[in-house]
Design a protein around this nucleic acid. Structure first.
Lengths: 240, 240
DNA sequence: TAGTGGTCTAGACCACTAA
DNA sequence: TAGTGGTCTAGACCACTAC
């Protein structure tokens, strides 16, 4: 966070969130920012590009950078956000039940998801299954599969709290990007057993393939939501 | 498309898709590309950054740019893609039924979505309702609301073909970005009337707020999918 | 040590907006 | 016309990887 462009990004973001730059107003021009921060214009532009990509501003040629309507109330399920971060933002009554935690040879299906060769009989996978309770009802079932060699010290207590904090904080792993697929499916036996499905006939399934900095796939996750507790918000720019 | 960095981007993208740079291989280094294209390194980097943002490569410090597993088979519902583009890629048996097309004063609800003041009694909105048929079944209901002043010449024929092509091609409007929300809801009377719901008890609802280049909101769309015909794929980078 | 990508600079010219 | 953002350049120094 000592990079100049990140400092500028954080500063401006904070100012937008504090309403110092209200919606529909213009940020200082690139030349003004360049003078303010004693830097070059390209560095200022890097910060503004980041803001633009994350949906905070829109740059308009000949005019300036407009502040867009806030994402404040949006579920930040877009991008990569863990349940813990979500929970902290939502402030609702939440609980996590760790239903399983074991390391072993993966099934054929899991091998396929994690791009492990079918003949490979040595790569171990750590499986974590957790039910998420919101306001007294179990509404999300998270099934995580990690390459065991990459994660050590994954205890029930860690799974209870935040695996991502463990990975990024304690282990120093750097999660880089993920591919996600959202579909709607029929509930499985396991869904019925582990969740409070009430009368719901469908389950929203989010399949997540998570990659590290060095482009290696290291986690496959299935997050299974009761439909009424599912919401996904996305910001997308059109690439011409 | 005459920008140097876009040319480099397109070239590399094509080479990746043609398997000249297979998955897990490295692209030429930035210095090599700089020499190849007779340009500066920053311009090369701009192209590579675009590839990275769109999920085609991962840049690894000290090593190079690795080609990631392909998005080829992914539904490109992520980002901003119209039904027509989708249809073209899918090549399935598709049809569009235009159920309504009219321009009038909007309801209170639509005013709210399009950020029109409640007291405003002059701003007209064009409503288009279309049912999408795939393999003989009507499975998607698209309800579009446009600021009428921005779109002219929107006929049933255009709605039948592609509104986006009309907007970007004929009218020269530049769609810039959109905010999307995905939820699962109970079907309405209208859903039951317009779609072949079979036994399905839920509808996947995608609410879309579309903005132009100059940061003005000009379209609100509700796309209502039968759950078995819904799939959403997303690529997301983690911003540290 | 050589080669890679990450950041930063100080300029330049262009296209567009608004007065 | 003055001010804005969009593109591009030719360097520089740094951090990391691999040999």
């Amino acid at each position: 966070m000592q990079n100049k462009y990140l400092v500028i990004y954080q500063d401006l973001l904070e100012q937008i969130e504090d309403d110092i730059h209200p919606v529909d107003s213009y940020l200082p021009s690139e030349n003004e920012l360049k003078a303010q921060y004693q830097t070059s214009r390209e560095t200022v532009r890097k910060a503004l590009t980041l803001l633009s990509q994350n949906g905070y501003i829109q740059k308009v040629r000949g005019k300036g950078s407009v502040v867009l309507p806030q994402n404040k109330f949006d579920f930040p399920v877009s991008g990569l956000v863990s349940f813990k971060e979500l929970r902290d933002k939502l402030g609702e009554d939440n609980k996590t039940h760790v239903l399983a935690l074991e390391t072993r040879l993966p099934s054929r299906h899991i091998k396929k998801q994690l791009l492990i060769d079918d003949d490979d009989m040595s790569t171990l996978v750590t499986k974590v299954i957790r039910a998420r309770e919101i306001n007294g009802e179990k509404v999300i079932l998270d099934k995580d599969y990690f390459l065991a060699e990459k994660i050590s010290g994954l205890t029930a207590q860690v799974a209870q709290d935040s695996i991502y904090q463990h990975l990024e904080g304690t282990l120093g792993l750097s999660i880089s990007f993920a591919k996600k697929e959202i579909t709607v499916e029929d509930p499985t036996e396991e869904d019925r057993d582990s969740l409070d499905l009430d009368g719901f006939h469908n389950i929203v399934v989010i399949k997540n393939y998570v990659y590290l900095d060095n482009a290696t796939l290291f986690q496959y996750t299935e997050s299974r939501h009761r439909p009424d507790r599912f919401r996904f918000v996305d910001f997308a720019r059109r690439h011409h």
